[in-house]
Design a protein around this nucleic acid. Structure first.
Lengths: 153, 153
DNA sequence: TAAGATTGAAGACTCAATCTTC
DNA sequence: GAAGATTGAGTCTTCAATCTTA
């Protein structure tokens, strides 16, 4: 008899994350934003008026540089970000969020916040904290981007 | 200043789940299995020698019935499952795992188990339990399939 | 009417490969 | 050689719509 699949953590994590992602995606649809695009805008918003490279944005959004390249192309077309050659590095392109990008980011964050609040409602404040701590540990172990984790990039 | 995106739970959950899914996907590639296909085999394995409908398999795998329909077609071609009309319902098709399906399932589970163990290594036994309890609560709240949750289907 | 299975269209993602710059 | 940006191919997925059966 095979092991009980439905109780394994990767399966449970996937089911929850998928369901949540789907809800967020539907909320984001009114703004024509994908997850990767929202993540890019959000990280650029925190950096504003600074800039980030496409590779770094991909890393922070958890997608490949190729995916992020396509995402940025769409943001550029809509004037939500602008791009300029890096002052010293030749091939590198600095991406920066615009005023209208910041404005859209604000509205999109509000829409996703509503989904988040609803999804986390069944958890106690202690569970919130515990879940955050666990995910944080896993992010570090998996070498995934984490804000202020002594990021020296 | 926009809220800190990188510390919001949906983002953290997505980053971890994505990274984990990608690792699992790579481990599954040697068996030519997708997540949905493995989930289908696993749930059918637990039900064996019983059968499940495509719709039910989709629900349990967390994908749409359309996605599961394509996944099943591939499993059928490879002889990992068989299908027969439901005894009483006319349109319904019962899917059942074969001996070679069970054999492949066993090997695939072993491969994914290694990934799982590595990913969860940084967590303490208490954290394992806590994470499982939290995900379980969220699955119930999000109306996602959960084994032995008084499932009357 | 409702539920299950399926087909077609569109989108986002990874992988592989290429080009450019240091 | 290494890093960043990009293009092309292939795959999995959702959404929308259709067909069938109770």
């Amino acid at each position: 008899v095979p092991e009980d699949f439905g109780r394994r953590l990767p399966y449970m994590m996937r089911m929850v994350s998928n369901a949540l992602s789907l809800q967020l995606e539907r909320a984001l649809r009114q703004f024509s934003l994908t997850h990767a695009q929202l993540a890019a805008l959000a990280h650029l918003g925190l950096e504003s008026p600074g800039a980030l490279s496409g590779a770094e944005l991909g890393h922070r959004a958890g997608v490949t540089a190729q995916s992020m390249s396509a995402a940025i192309a769409s943001l550029l077309e809509r004037g939500l970000v602008v791009r300029a050659p890096h002052p010293t590095h030749g091939r590198r392109l600095d991406v920066q969020i615009t005023a209208s990008g910041l404005e859209l980011l604000d509205r999109a964050q509000a829409a996703t916040k509503a989904v988040e609040v609803r999804a986390l409602a069944p958890l106690s404040p202690d569970q919130h904290r515990e879940l955050r701590a666990i995910l944080r540990q896993m992010m570090i172990a998996m070498d995934v981007y984490l804000p202020d984790s002594a990021d020296v990039r």
